[in-house]
């Protein structure tokens, strides 16, 4: 985020910038049941991420979507902290499927080519499928973490290599990669 301009006071207030944001999410796979949320908080109380990182609050995410805080939601890096455990989906008494709503919102963020570690990882992952049919772990890890991130791993890569545990540096793509790529392209066109 850009720093405040000279002469202005940084304020943490937000304004609803998209009154129909909820409908946008409602129309995506995973977002269908958004409207019936009664904010009972069973989702957040079930969330193992929120217990460690309160910035990711799934109930509040739903409230923000319903209120129309589009930019606030999409620019929030915490959106990418969901670990997809789906405890919220299993326990939500209203069958709102909160974890699937995260999927829908991330879809919008990816469509807008948002930046950050989350979108970068998702794109690296998808690129890896396009290129090899399956995941090339070494490459996805490198592209997601970048060199700096990899260095922060310290000796772990070396230890893994020593144990023969390291992901392969080169992976042969599936024979059917052209087929898979054609399928992904076709799905993209259709969407």
């Amino acid at each position: 985020m850009a720093g405040p301009k000279a002469g202005t006071v940084a304020s943490s207030t937000v304004r609803p910038d998209s009154p129909t944001f909820w409908k946008e999410v409602l129309g995506l796979p995973g977002g269908e049941a958004l409207a019936t949320c009664i904010q009972c908080n069973t989702c957040t109380s079930s969330c193992p991420v929120e217990a460690l990182e309160p910035e990711f609050n799934i109930r509040r995410l739903i409230a923000r979507i319903k209120l129309g805080l589009r930019e606030d939601v999409l620019s929030d890096e915490a959106l990418w902290a969901c670990a997809r455990c789906f405890a919220c989906v299993a326990r939500c008494p209203k069958h709102v499927r909160p974890g699937d709503i995260v999927e829908a919102v991330r879809h919008i963020a990816l469509g807008e080519e948002r930046e950050g570690p989350g979108p970068r990882h998702a794109r690296a992952f998808v690129e890896s499928i396009r290129d090899g049919g399956r995941i090339h772990e070494a490459r996805v890890t490198l592209e997601s973490l970048r060199l700096a991130g990899l260095l922060r791993e310290g000796w772990l890569p070396a230890r893994m290599a020593w144990r023969g545990k390291a992901p392969r540096l080169r992976r042969r793509p599936l024979k059917s990669v052209p087929e898979i790529r054609a399928l992904l392209d076709a799905a993209e066109e259709g969407a």
């Binding site: 995506l28 796979p29 997809r84 794109r123 499928i129 049919g133 995941i135 024979k175 799905a187």
Partner: peptide, 18 residues
């Protein structure tokens, strides 16, 4: 042998239909 990745949630987010 020729089956692709399940998507693991990432592809689902990127393009659910794909």
């Amino acid at each position: 042998e020729d089956a692709g990745c399940c998507g693991a949630g990432n592809l689902q987010e990127y393009n659910p239909e794909a």
